[in-house]
Amino acid sequence: MAGLWHRLGPIVTVVIAIFVLWYAGAVALNAAWAQDKAKRNNIELSFSELVADTMSQKKPKLPAPHQVGQEIWKTTGAMVLKGKAFSKRSLLYHSGVTLSSTLLGFAMGTALGIALAVGIVYNRTMDMSVMPWVIASQTIPILAIAPMIIVVLNAVGISGLLPKAVISMYLSFFPVVVGMVKGLRSPDHMQLDQMKTWSATDGQEFWKLRLPSSMPYLFTSLKIAMAASLVGAIVGELPTGAIAGLGARLLGGSYYGQTIQIWSALITAAALAAALVGLIGLMQTMVLKRMGMVR
């Protein structure tokens, strides 16, 4: 029991602190609107009435956590109960749309990142030339380049899932390149000399030494890449006219001042990211344990 509290205690404390701050923020930010309303109706609000009002407005500046919670339930669990889990009003539907381009972009980004890292480690010309471009690619604001990617790909007849995945790839290949270059170079001189004493080929050195050695670096990179990929997918949904996806919900919400809808999309995106990163963390623990790299 003490052990469980030792692990969960800090997490619970932080969560409680976040909720306290959030409610306090909701009261403070929404109070002005509540007072305005009361003045127009010539009503004097007591403190408890004021607090109650700040937490039940239709378009609050900052929705209270339970409002967001209700909205999320209304658009997920409740829809499932009604048998309309994947209707266009369901957050599950929108999450699914975002998830599919996140995963596709993540897979493409990981593949591209590993390929570039192998090139950089094994080819002197690439070593000297590729990295500055890789870094430069990340200094361009994604919001600026995302519409261009959509437009260009549309012009060549590619639309739908792929352009969004390309934007995810654009963000997610970077941590993989950086991590894998470091990982593939992590074997020390002795290990490389040892391979030489056995007259190992470059291929054998790669598969038997460099690649296994890079695994801890790969998984760390994949976690960052996954989070970046989700951001890419959401950003990619904005210029497509906000038809579907969590990005579309964000944009749609901001058109109509639906702050509760915006926040519920935000929270859902965060939960999705946490779940995906957690999944990679789980794989990391399993793989590295099997490889004897963590104990």
Partner: peptide, 19 residues
């Protein structure tokens, strides 16, 4: 001689692969 695998070499550290 190296290519003919004429020798075995033991380094100061065992350098066994943990995996």
């Amino acid at each position: 001689a190296r290519k003919a695998r004429a020798y075995g070499y033991v380094f100061q550290h065992a350098g066994l692969y943990p995996w």
